[in-house]
Simulated scan of single mutants.
Amino acid sequence: MDNQRDNGNFDNDGDGIPDDFDWDNDNDGIPNTQEESLQSSIDHDGDGVEDWLDDDDDNDGIDDREEVSDGNPLTCIYDHGNDGVRDDIDFDIDNDGIDNWNDFLDCDGDGDEDEVASRDHDNDCLDDAVDPDDDNDDILDVDESDGAFGIYRYDHDNDGLSDSYDTDDDNDGLSDWFEQNDGWDMTGQFDHDNDGIPDNMDDDDDGDGIPDANENDFDIT
């Protein structure tokens, strides 16, 4: 969070203590003096911007000040998925069902999965903070039924079950694990009809010949 120690009585972290009197004015648990002496070398989300200069420490697209002051116990400056589990103890930071240590992508097409994707829920090489549709369901985050940072932000098939707990994110009858490991390019975690076209790019997600615009995307009855 931006350290605004020169702003007089400004309360940067919204804790009711003016910055001039607050030993930790960005509410990250690290004393201001320590951050200044270390030149705040901590970069929680690994985006190249040190936390004391970063307005979005966990790279979830929500300004740190809003997360501190919004009164929502689930939003936290160090909880990317806003699931109530801090990133430092969360095995799946972006709630995509893939453990952080296995969450890598080949974003440059060189054949090596060398891009860290632990903050990219739909694994489209766009970090959630800059991705307008985090779960690739073709519904913009801001248009999800419970808002840009609710459960449906990470619920591809919009069944009310977050993708991190849903074993079949695209509701196609094939488990996500199988689709990730079967070695077949046509099956995909976010490709309901397994035609090789991700649902967010497919005009007919269920392959029934009826455009999605004219029906429920996952109408398989």
Rank of each mutant, 00 (worst) to 15 (best):
G46R: 00
R65G: 10
F91K: 06
D70A: 04
I42F: 13
C107H: 06
S41W: 12
L53E: 06
N59A: 15
D55Y: 07
E67W: 08
C76S: 15
S69T: 15
D96L: 05
E36C: 13
D92Q: 02
L53T: 02
L38F: 09
F104N: 03
P73H: 07
L105Y: 11
D58N: 03
V85Q: 07
G97V: 04
V68H: 12
D70R: 03
G84I: 12
N102C: 06
D45W: 01
G61N: 10
D94Q: 00
N102Q: 10
Y78N: 14
E50C: 08
E113D: 09
T75L: 08
N95G: 01
V85D: 04
V49P: 00
G61A: 03
D103V: 03
G111Y: 09
E113G: 04
L74M: 14
G97T: 00
H80F: 10
D103M: 02
G61M: 09
N95H: 06
V49R: 04
D96W: 00
H44W: 12
N59W: 11
D54N: 14
S41P: 01
D114H: 09
D56A: 11
D51Q: 08
P73I: 05
R86V: 06
D83H: 01
D63G: 11
D79H: 08
R65D: 02
S69K: 08
D79E: 13
D60H: 00
E36S: 12
Y78W: 06
N72G: 10
G109Q: 14
L74A: 08
C107K: 07
G97A: 00
S69E: 15
I93C: 05
I93K: 09
V85W: 05
I62S: 03
V68N: 09
I89Y: 06
D106N: 06
D54S: 05
D55I: 10
G71A: 10
D88V: 09
E113T: 11
I77R: 07
D87Y: 01
V49H: 00
G111P: 15
D58F: 03
H80I: 02
D103A: 05
D88C: 06
Y78L: 10
E36M: 13
D112T: 12
Q39F: 15
D64W: 03
D87E: 06
D57H: 01
D112W: 06
W101V: 05
D87A: 01
D43A: 06
L74F: 15
W52P: 09
S37T: 12
D64I: 01
D54I: 01
D94H: 03
T75D: 14
D96K: 07
R65E: 03
D55V: 09
D106W: 05
V68I: 00
G97L: 04
Y78C: 05
Q39C: 14
E113L: 01
G48I: 13
F91D: 12
I89Q: 05
D47N: 14
D106H: 13
L105Q: 15
D88E: 14
D45E: 13
L105K: 07
D83E: 08
N95W: 01
D88K: 09
E66P: 00
D79F: 08
R65H: 11
S40A: 15
D56S: 12
N100Q: 12
D60F: 01
D54K: 04
N95T: 05
